[in-house]
Design a protein around this nucleic acid. Sequence first.
DNA 1: CAACGTGGCGCCAGTCACTGACATGACCCG
DNA 2: CGGGTCATGTCAGTGACTGGCGCCACGTTG
Lengths: 187, 187
Amino acid sequence: MPRSGLEARRRLQQAALELFQERGFDRTTTAEIAARAGVNERTYFRHFADKREVLFDGEDDLRASLAQAVAEAPEGLQPFEILLCAFRRTGRALEANRSFAEPRFAVIAATPALRERELAKHASLADVVAEALRQRAVPDRLAALAAQTGWAAYRQAVQAWTNDPGQGLDAHLAQAFDDLRTLSATG
Amino acid sequence: MPRSGLEARRRLQQAALELFQERGFDRTTTAEIAARAGVNERTYFRHFADKREVLFDGEDDLRASLAQAVAEAPEGLQPFEILLCAFRRTGRALEANRSFAEPRFAVIAATPALRERELAKHASLADVVAEALRQRAVPDRLAALAAQTGWAAYRQAVQAWTNDPGQGLDAHLAQAFDDLRTLSATG
DNA sequence: CAACGTGGCGCCAGTCACTGACATGACCCG
DNA sequence: CGGGTCATGTCAGTGACTGGCGCCACGTTG
């Protein structure tokens, strides 16, 4: 038995994703996940705060990546340009993990409870982006609004990209941020 | 006993709000809510799908109001102008209900689980807005993006208004949509 | 090497959200 | 007045989640 629980943790994530695909989230019990991972149900809850969290691991890394990407965007850019730049960068990780992210997305999309959790995570990440913008001297109110708006564009791009992965995420990002400009230009 | 359960339903909502204020959401059981409302716990779940839903009633009305407000905005406006107009209108109901909405907001703000649910509701309402925009011949992708962006501005305005109700919601809405324009103009 | 601390885990009992099934009594309609 | 419908009460059950305890594998220290 490994000293650190990282092994069990990974097995739990794997088992959960498999079971959610096979039977759906609602028809899967935490006991079954634990059993497939070869651990006790109690151990499941030592690794993940609740049944949903098993699909949302690594959030801290994401937060850090986002904050860093925003912080390290070139000087002199306007808020949306900063965000486009940052999302291009963090999006690479997404493109690299597509084979893992895809079934995960499918399960989340099929389960209202998981969608709800995803929205909460996204809101939290948008807050990180807003804070990172403030660090770059974007005024308080504008930072929050830019972060949420930019995040909406980002999700739109990811959505378009999953439907049409051929073009690459960057192209869809450019498209989405262009739409943003269109909206404000005409309205 | 009244033929329709509307009476019990209202008592349940009242009892829930009170208890959530007194003890907090997590330290309140559905049995306690039902007891204070003078009904059986089972009846609680006949009226509300889960423990959180008791604070999110009337969503259907809101959806209808939003859709109508967007549909009835003057002709010839650009997407953001339509939304500003629609939010001005639906916002009046909010201003009228402030004494009820305020404690509700406080409870939600203090409870992560309720915030999560609120985000889900908001996402759903933004979808309604997007669909209403499409009905007005706004192109598909732009409609979704405009709805989400406009919704972010709306929330920002409501937030600012709760902190400073003196100015009226309309002023804050104007401010938020102006910020939106600023963002795109400079970026 | 031996004693010790620590951390991951199994186990058990308990609470609480939520559900399905059936019974009952109030109401409305013919 | 008889029958149907609807809100509710009652009860048993499932499953998510928690606290507490003890165990054992490991690393550390003397």
